[in-house]
Design a protein around this nucleic acid. Structure first.
Lengths: 241, 241
DNA sequence: TCACGTTAGCGCACGCCGTACGCACCTTGC
DNA sequence: GCAAGGTGCGTACGGCGTGCGCTAACGTGA
């Protein structure tokens, strides 16, 4: 061991003065979101995140307990993005709920990697932003006139729909992003394989070929709005009965 | 390198006669499902799976291209479990759809690790079982009287609800399973932390404390049925209009 | 001004992971 | 009996999360 001769640091190989600009948890979370947005969840590693922050991977562990905790923080941070109406007015609940649902979908499409985590929110790691959102949404259902024992179920129904469709869309967009193509190119390229695969199930083909010329993003927007309206119709029917 | 002296195998260290019982893709998929059910998705590694099959990890690559492909196969295999009604009768569509949705939820609760993959089914890897299920479900909506351009949207709405609620439930049950407790113990243990966290958001507490004495599994079953009925109410309203 | 306790950053190491490669062997068809 | 092709597997590579213990900068009170 030649290192034993010199006292671990020699004058010539000084490690470097290294000015210490403090790392903060906020910086780490923000950079993690940038990395996730740019490269997806499987490209997030503590080493890569450390490099981007100009620090060693292990330094991050002074600020977050482990990678799972980092993801909890990141998810709640993203939950701070949606604009959630806080004024309650029993006659406008449907508008407010539609707005919130639309914001949640937009949030998921901006950060598709968040989709698989969405299911756990409200159950496992209840961050402050997620709690604020849930509470505001619940207030709308309360104002709409849902009894206390049904409010939770109504909100769960809506959230399940939003999470489900956003999860599916996010997965779809992630695949396209990895392919490096635009959505329209990707859809066009997949068509032959799709047609062949659905030869035994012609019903699966009917709807999609009907709107072959419509912009795919428009189709997704319409589908989301259609389902949201059906869910809210079903919930509203409970109030008039 | 002493290994250079002997021609890689010596008489004394014969590797072993090794009778070759053929590995099959079906065996690999079946064992992967057992491992996933028992230990969860983060415990599935090719090495561990190989060990369980009495073989080397790298041998698996003769039968599946890579781990992602294995997961595709595993997911489609699980999609073969639900009992999906194939007889179509326009007057009984709601019963048939309810049955299918219930089966899909049960499938997800038996295999909670499948939840994050659910969103991609029908978009990315379209296995034969998943396609059979989608086609049969679509037939029910067709028989119900949905026009061709609306069938797809109706099915997507239902699937989004089912995927969303199953994802949330699966995440919740996975956490409990990792804790080694029963669902009731876990809920009881979490209550103090939950009460404290919701002090600023009393609305979030109202519903859950109302049914403090009801068995948690019963609550989940009721919630699923409630939301499913609302979604189907909303869809059915389109048919009578 | 200085000494000292606290703490952030980091080098190293460990035990995992997915999987590419090429060799040794078994099975099959002639 | 033998050639050919396919199957299992040992080895290795580069990457991962993260525990450990050291160094050096910082904040504080004397």
């Amino acid at each position: 061991m030649p290192n034993d001769e010199k006292p671990t640091t020699s004058v010539w190989t000084r490690p470097r003065p290294r000015q210490r600009e403090h790392l903060t948890r906020e910086q780490i979370v923000a950079e993690a979101i940038r990395l996730l947005d740019a490269e997806g969840v499987e490209e997030l590693s503590m080493r890569k995140l450390g490099t981007r922050l100009g620090t060693a991977a292990t330094s991050l562990y002074r600020h977050v307990a482990n990678k799972d905790e980092l993801i909890e923080l990141v998810v709640d941070d993203v939950y701070g993005e949606p604009d959630v109406p806080t004024v309650v007015d029993g006659t406008r609940w449907r508008t407010a709920v539609t707005h919130t649902a639309t914001e949640l979908r937009a949030m998921t499409l901006r950060h598709p990697w968040i989709a698989p985590e969405l299911g756990q929110v409200g159950l496992v790691h209840i961050g402050p932003n997620a709690m604020r959102m849930s509470s505001a949404l619940l207030a709308q259902f309360e104002a709409a006139g849902f009894p206390a024992d049904e409010m939770d179920q109504a909100m769960a129904t809506l959230m399940a729909y939003v999470i489900g469709i956003a999860t599916a869309e996010a997965a779809y967009l992630s695949v396209i992003a990895r392919s490096g193509q635009t959505e329209q190119e990707w859809v066009a390229g997949l068509r032959p394989a799709f047609d062949e695969a659905t030869q035994e199930h012609p019903r699966l083909r009917a709807g999609s070929s009907a709107q072959q010329d419509v912009h795919p993003q428009r189709i997704r927007d319409d589908n989301f709005a259609y389902g949201l309206d059906r869910v809210l119709d079903g919930l509203a029917a409970r109030l008039t009965a």
